[in-house]
């Protein structure tokens, strides 16, 4: 019961904060919408995608982009939620969370869950924008894509959480976010399929794209949107999420983690 109430506390707080931060709310939808409308329009005639799974016919570039942009929404939400944790640390609020009478790993899990829920809501808001913009995707896919969005959101939030163990100041974290978000996004299948890159001859980039866990998350979402459960991508997504969470929980453990050993101005 205590754990459930603690979970409720963390999720409610995140929701209240998110709703009060109107610029964050707006940017969550506007950012991917701009990519879709501007980038998608500019390249739609250049970068049509021929028949390749999960698509059963030639698709326009904006259709291809949608799962990648959903991944982008989750990626930004994951990093924003970690940034909020770093802010909580600097503002002293994290101490309150870490002295709650529930295990620390559970508090961190609650933070991740709250971030994931916000990510899911933003992803669906973007689906609505994409639909209004005339992008064609199967409506039943909105249901089948849910597990992929949840798992992808959790994995990306976990990676962000792991970053907060090692990057502890706001100014450093903001810089680190750029080093995570941009390579993760551009060296993935979010904007172009791996075989298109292979055709261009940039083999190093093909490897980078294939090894990038964000590619697995995007493909997991892409296939799920068409009702196909992509097992390898799902395994990578869940595996990366769990590993990042376990390392982060260990990092925050006062007995084992780096934060507990460092002490002083931490926490």
């Amino acid at each position: 019961m205590r754990w459930l109430r603690a979970l409720e506390a963390v999720v409610l707080r995140e929701a209240i904060r998110f709703l009060r931060q109107t610029s964050r709310l707006a940017s969550a939808v506007v950012r991917p919408a701009l990519w879709l409308l501007v980038f998608g329009a500019g390249f739609s005639n250049v970068l049509g995608i021929s028949i390749t799974p999960p698509y059963q016919t030639y698709v326009t570039y904006d259709v291809y982009m949608v799962p990648g942009l959903v991944g982008m929404v989750l990626l930004f939400q994951g990093m924003q939620s970690s940034l909020a944790l770093v802010f909580d640390r600097e503002a002293g609020f994290l101490r309150l969370l870490l002295t709650a009478p529930v295990p620390r790993w559970f508090i961190l899990f609650a933070k991740l869950l709250a971030g994931t829920i916000l990510g899911v809501l933003q992803a669906y808001a973007f689906f609505v924008v994409a639909w209004l913009a005339g992008v064609d995707y199967p409506l039943f896919g909105l249901l089948t894509v849910l597990p992929a969005i949840v798992m992808g959101g959790f994995a990306l939030a976990s990676i962000g959480l792991l970053l907060t163990v090692h990057v502890r100041r706001m100014e450093n974290f903001a810089g680190t976010m750029n080093f995570v978000i941009f390579p993760a996004f551009f060296l993935s299948t979010a904007l172009y399929p791996a075989w298109k890159i292979a055709e261009s001859g940039a083999l190093w980039m093909v490897w980078a794209v294939r090894l990038n866990p964000f590619s697995a998350i995007v493909e997991f979402i892409r296939f799920a949107l068409y009702g196909i459960f992509a097992v390898p991508e799902a395994l990578v997504t869940v595996g990366v999420g769990l590993l990042a969470f376990l390392f982060a929980a260990r990092g925050y453990d006062p007995q084992k983690g780096v934060l507990g050993r460092r002490g002083r101005d931490e926490g």
């Binding site: 109430r5 603690a6 409720e8 506390a9 409610l12 707080r13 209240i16 309150l96 709650a100 009478p101």
Partner: peptide, 13 residues
């Protein structure tokens, strides 16, 4: 809300 948050964190009904 700050007080409610803390009370929930401590598992109060």
């Amino acid at each position: 809300q700050n007080l409610n948050f803390h009370a929930r964190l401590h598992g109060m009904t």
